[in-house]
Simulated assay, not measured.
Amino acid sequence: MPLQIKRIYDPFQETDGIRLLVDRLWPRGVSKENAHLDGWMKQLAPSSQLRTWFGHKAENFEEFAMVYRIELDANPEAQAAARQIILQSKENMVTLLYGAKDPQVNHAMILKEYLESHSFTL
């Protein structure tokens, strides 16, 4: 499944394929024109309450990941969006875009793993 994650602040590349923002909030300082988006999948972002608790702190990441996966499993809108991405990724590169500063401590990493592990069950 061609699926990758990338900061929305990184330059657009043709090889990004389908570009989907997976944050609940619009990233500060990015114009819609420069984002080169094909979609904004807010329903795949962590809840506001979970995001606030997490605070992008590495010490919270493991628990955050567990709760975030539970949220994804329990949300029918997230499940529908996940199916759509999985179908798109069977034919095209899909780039999940996020705004967090840390490339190792962010929800897009978890979402990518989630999508890859659920590709046959959705």
Rank of each mutant, 00 (worst) to 15 (best):
V22L: 02
V22F: 04
V22E: 05
D23V: 03
R24E: 01
L25K: 08
L25V: 13
P27L: 03
P27M: 05
R28E: 04
R28S: 04
V30M: 10
V30Q: 01
S31R: 11
S31N: 10
K32A: 08
K32S: 03
E33G: 07
E33N: 13
E33S: 14
N34K: 15
N34T: 13
N34S: 15
A35R: 14
A35P: 14
H36S: 07
L37R: 05
D38I: 06
D38C: 13
G39C: 02
G39M: 07
K42Q: 06
K42S: 01
Q43D: 07
Q43K: 05
Q43Y: 00
L44G: 09
A45H: 06
S47H: 09
S48L: 09
Q49G: 01
R51P: 00
T52P: 00
G55Y: 09
G55T: 04
H56M: 03
K57R: 15
A58S: 10
E59I: 06
E59T: 02
N60Y: 05
F61H: 08
E62C: 09
E62K: 12
E62P: 01
A65W: 01
A65S: 15
V67W: 09
Y68R: 04
Y68V: 05
R69P: 00
R69C: 13
I70F: 10
E71N: 06
E71W: 05
L72V: 02
D73L: 14
D73C: 13
D73V: 07
N75M: 08
N75P: 00
N75A: 04
P76E: 08
P76V: 08
E77A: 15
A78H: 09
A78Q: 02
Q79L: 13
Q79V: 06
A80M: 11
A80T: 13
A81K: 07
Q84D: 14
Q84Y: 14
I85R: 06
I85M: 10
I85E: 07
I85W: 12
I85N: 02
I86Q: 07
L87K: 14
L87A: 15
L87I: 11
Q88W: 15
S89C: 13
S89L: 13
S89A: 15
K90R: 15
E91Q: 15
N92K: 14
N92I: 09
T95D: 10
L96N: 08
L96K: 00
L96E: 04
L97P: 08
G99K: 11
A100T: 10
A100P: 05
A100D: 12
D102Y: 08
P103H: 11
Q104H: 14
V105L: 09
N106Y: 09
N106E: 09
N106G: 02
H107A: 01
A108Q: 01
A108N: 03
M109W: 00
K112C: 14
K112R: 15
K112F: 09
